[in-house]
Design a protein around this nucleic acid. Structure first.
Length: 415
DNA sequence: TCTGGGGTCCTAGGACCC
DNA sequence: TCTGGGGTCCTAGGACCC
């Protein structure tokens, strides 16, 4: 007996742009871009001119002179994304959200209640359109990988079921870059070997594939080309790292620049970690030079931390070491911090024992405890009055922001 | 013709231990 | 005196995804 296709991949079409067009009817049917300095999302009308997400706003305007730029309504995006995925959840508890506008679902267990996978998918599409006013495409297949490809092929505003009997016929005709994990670099390498279609990839000997792309990527691609994808739906993902970065334009690589910036980044990361009761042992700093080459420095601490001041100190120390190692790099364009080796526990007790807080403030209290309490107080104020209400005094960033802060908050939001 | 920010996973080499 | 193998952890960098 042949397995049935019960995995759905649902993907809201040109999400931010569609929301804007839904909210403002005068934008419907027109080429719009959400964002300004950088295009965060483009409507299909704009995509027809070659405009796409991530593109500099100026370039987009060149391609499409009548392009309308709209600032984002980020609260709406979060709300509507949640609502759309929620509709999917009305039919099965097996929903795996992978971003604000995208999710997998397995409907194998609810067919007797709601009908065939295609019927369920169509119901979801109809409801998202009727209740939220948004277009959503859904792909259905036997595996996650193929369902995702199907939803991309179905776009815009479409539904595509890949019958298990037709999987390879469907898949092998498509270009290699439809495969999850084939980006520009892998595509180029494959093209150099004369491989542009999935079908060609499929018949490549495993050994040469692994030689070309490395063991893991080669093996994965070889399997995916035959639609061998063992991944199941995972309903709870736990974070493996928490990070923040900031593009700086061109700034001198000096203490007076990187100290306040790292402090601000550490502050954002620390408060996010504390709000989720996470702490982490490895602190990685990224420094990007003016020519876009970037350097990372990581250090693993003996115990996990989440206090802003400690994260900042560790990060500053690493920035200094990069500075010392690259005396000829006078200009930087980005700084980032990321914390990994996360553990699910408050960091308070652990930070005492790090030796980072050797000056006791008073008997029974360490500097680490004082910091932790200060952080908690700050977190509480922000919870009531908003992020901008309070912060580390030294932090005044004159960075010109091409990305609205609300977008950062959105990107930071736990999905 | 230089795009921002938040992530995940893989590779390779070195240190260290048994 | 060059003679193994296996495992784990760590760092740095790269590719990819949304």
């Amino acid at each position: 007996m042949e397995a049935t296709a019960t995995i759905l991949h649902a993907d809201l079409d040109a999400f931010y742009a569609s929301v804007e067009q839904m909210l403002d009817p005068s934008l419907r049917g027109r080429a719009i871009a959400v964002g300004g300095g950088v295009v965060l999302a483009a409507s299909y009308e704009a995509k027809a001119f070659g405009v796409h997400g991530g593109m500099p706003g100026r370039r987009a305007r060149e391609l499409c002179p009548h392009l309308i730029f709209v600032p984002g309504n980020f609260r709406h995006y979060q709300r509507l994304g949640d609502a759309a995925i929620g509709i999917l959840g009305d039919y099965t508890p097996l929903v795996e959200r992978i971003s604000i506008d995208e999710a997998f679902a397995d409907v194998a267990g609810c067919l007797h209640l709601f009908g065939s996978p295609a019927e369920i998918a169509q119901t979801v599409r109809t409801r998202v359109r009727r209740e939220l006013g948004l277009p959503i495409s859904i792909g259905i297949a036997r595996t996650k990988h193929l369902a995702k490809i199907a939803s991309q092929v179905a776009k815009p505003d479409g539904l595509l079921l890949v019958d298990p009997a037709d999987e390879l016929e469907f898949l092998h005709d498509l270009p290699v870059e439809v495969i999850w994990g084939v980006g520009p670099a892998t595509k180029r390498r494959l093209a150099e070997a004369g491989v542009t279609k999935v079908g060609q990839l499929a018949v490549m000997p495993g050994q040469s594939l692994q030689k070309l792309l490395g063991h893991a990527v080669g093996e994965k691609l070889g399997a995916l080309a035959w639609n061998r994808d063992p991944r199941a739906i995972v309903t709870d993902h736990r974070a493996r790292s928490v990070g923040a970065q900031s593009a700086l334009g061109r700034r001198p690589f000096e203490e007076r620049v990187f100290r306040p910036t790292l402090r601000h980044l550490a502050d954002r990361i620390g408060s996010r970690m504390r709000s989720k009761a996470l702490s982490g042992r490895t602190v990685t700093v990224r420094v990007r030079f003016a020519d876009l080459r970037s350097i990372t420095r990581a250090v693993t601490l003996p115990a996990p931390v989440s206090a802003t001041a400690i994260l900042a100190e560790v990060a500053e120390e690493q920035a200094r070491s990069v500075r010392a190692d690259f005396p000829n790099e006078a200009t930087i364009s980005l700084l980032g911090i990321s914390v990994s080796h996360l553990e699910r526990q408050p960091a308070m007790q652990l930070e005492f024992s790090l030796g980072l807080d050797d000056e006791a403030v008073r008997p029974g209290t360490s500097r680490g405890a004082a910091r932790w309490q200060a952080d908690r107080a700050l977190d509480a104020v922000r919870q009531r009055f908003g992020w901008e209400a309070i912060g580390y005094g030294s932090v005044v960033l004159e960075t010109s922001r091409s990305v609205p802060d609300a977008f950062r908050e959105l990107a930071e939001k736990d999905l």
